[in-house]
Amino acid sequence: MIELENVAMSYGGGELLSDISLQLAPGSFHFLTGPSGAGKTTFLKLCYGALMPTAGHVRLFDHDVRNMARDDIALARRRIGVVHQDVRFLDHLPVADNVALPLTVSGRDTLDETVNLRELLAWVGLKARADALPPELSGGERQRAALARAVIMSPDVILADEPTGNIDWEMSQRLLQLLVELNRMGKTIMIATHDLNLIRAAKGQVQARVLRIASRRLQLAGADL
């Protein structure tokens, strides 16, 4: 699905990430941890083609991002749901439209999907806020809306960058639950988080691998959690 081979990344200064190789197999569940500023967000951006690696190869669905045209990247993003750390919406459109945005831009906003949309909004607890504008949402509500937007296309891969950063434990659990269920349906999941409790909670339910970015490398964290 997503494959990194000897990838290095630098923003112009020294290398932030070096020699990273990883294959996200279909149906796998990964956590990504590491200190703040280690490069978790950068790593995820490499995984959805928002950044080009400075060395090595990133392959999305078997295509090297370097050889992908802009439209190919756009189409790949429809198969990769992303919850961004700095959640951004179209501030002039209500929450429901924002959640449905991926459907709209890919021409799939059919009636069936409208029903899905309503269920999904209920699931993330935003039914009552469906007509609100994004700037009127609380931080946690924004993150839930972002998760809903990330999964509405039923993508093959879901990349979530600190999806539980602003929400309480109960809501975190519910979001995790949603991601675990999606994983059971065969989706590939990668969650960047600092929240070790969340990782522990997940370990009881799925076979999750924990990756850690430390000193520019990607390491597989042991069972020491």
Binding site: R70, A74, L75, R77, R88, V105
Partner: peptide
């Protein structure tokens, strides 16, 4: 710019 960036991130093609 913000609108365009969001559209791009959710998979909108340039032509759209």
């Amino acid at each position: 710019a913000q609108v365009i960036a969001v559209l791009r991130l959710v998979g909108a093609r340039d032509s759209y």
